[in-house]
Design a protein around this nucleic acid. Structure first.
Length: 211
DNA sequence: CGCACGATTTGCT
DNA sequence: GCAAATCGTGCGA
C-alpha cells in the first residue's frame, strides 16, 4: 500500500492518467454513525479551463467550482438536478482545475449504514451504482466540498496493483454537433456495480422522415 | 432580477 | 422507454 505522500503526489498527474489508477481503490468516510467504505469501479476524467467543454471548469473559476482550482486529492462536490450531490477528486497541478468524477463502486464496509441512507429495499449492487447514489450511500454532503481525502473523516487507499479496465465515452455530453467528446470514462469490466453503459444519445441517428 | 438548464434518479407503462 | 422531480448556478438585461 502506498504512503500518504505518494498518493498525494499521484494526483498531481493529469486526470486522464490518474483516473484508471483509482479503479479498485477504497474510499472510506467515517461519521458519528460509523464508517462506510467504497471500492471504486467506475470514474470519469474532466479536464481544465478551455480544454474540456464537459468540465465545470471549462469557462474559468466561479463560486461553485473554485475547489477544482485548488489542491489535488481534495473533494469537489456539486449539486445538480435540484436534488443530487456528486463527488470528484481534484486532480493534476494546482490551478489546472481538472478532476475525476466518482461514478460507481461497491460498498465493502458499512453496508447496513448505506442501506439506511439509500433504503432497505435497494439491492446491494445498486447502493453506489451511479454518481448521486454513491454520495448518498457514503453520506457525503455537499458541504464536504474542499475536504482533504487523506484526512478524517476521509481515507483513500490506492489499489495494491492496478485493476484491469476499459474505457468508453463519458455519459450525457458532447458528441457530433455538440462539441468534442472523449473516451474518458474508465470502469472495471464485468463488475456488477458499474452503471449500465448508455449509448451516447447524440450518436444515435435520428430519422424524422421515418425512412 | 428573471429565466433556462444540468457530469441524475426513480417510478410507472 | 419515458417523463417528472426540484433548485443552485450562470448569464443576460
Amino acid at each position: 500500500m502506498s504512503s500518504s505522500s505518494e498518493t498525494r503526489a499521484l494526483f498531481e498527474r493529469p486526470a486522464v492518467e490518474v483516473a484508471p489508477l483509482l479503479l479498485g481503490g477504497i474510499l472510506s468516510r467515517t461519521s458519528l454513525q460509523g464508517t462506510t467504505s467504497l471500492r471504486i469501479t467506475e470514474v470519469e476524467a474532466y479536464l481544465g479551463v478551455g480544454e474540456d467543454p464537459g468540465s465545470h471548469s471549462f469557462r474559468g473559476m466561479t463560486r461553485s467550482n473554485s475547489v477544482m482550482f485548488g489542491e489535488p486529492l481534495h473533494l469537489y462536490t456539486y449539486f445538480t438536478y435540484g436534488m443530487h450531490t456528486c463527488a470528484n477528486v481534484v486532480c493534476s497541478p494546482v490551478g489546472s482545475a481538472s478532476g475525476i468524477l466518482l461514478r460507481a463502486g461497491e460498498i465493502v464496509e458499512g453496508s447496513d449504514l448505506a442501506h439506511e441512507r439509500r433504503g432497505q429495499a435497494v439491492a446491494m449492487r445498486d447502493l453506489a451504482r451511479g454518481p448521486a447514489r454513491l454520495t448518498k450511500a457514503l453520506g457525503i454532503p455537499l458541504s464536504d466540498g474542499g475536504a482533504d481525502l487523506a484526512q478524517p473523516p476521509y481515507e483513500l487507499r490506492m489499489p495494491d496493483q492496478p485493476a484491469p479496465y476499459e474505457t468508453s465515452l463519458r455519459t450525457g455530453l458532447g458528441g457530433p454537433g455538440g462539441g468534442p467528446e472523449f473516451p474518458w470514462r474508465f470502469f472495471i469490466p464485468g463488475d456488477p456495480t458499474v452503471s449500465p453503459y448508455k449509448r451516447h444519445p447524440k450518436l444515435l441517428p435520428f430519422d424524422p422522415a421515418g425512412g
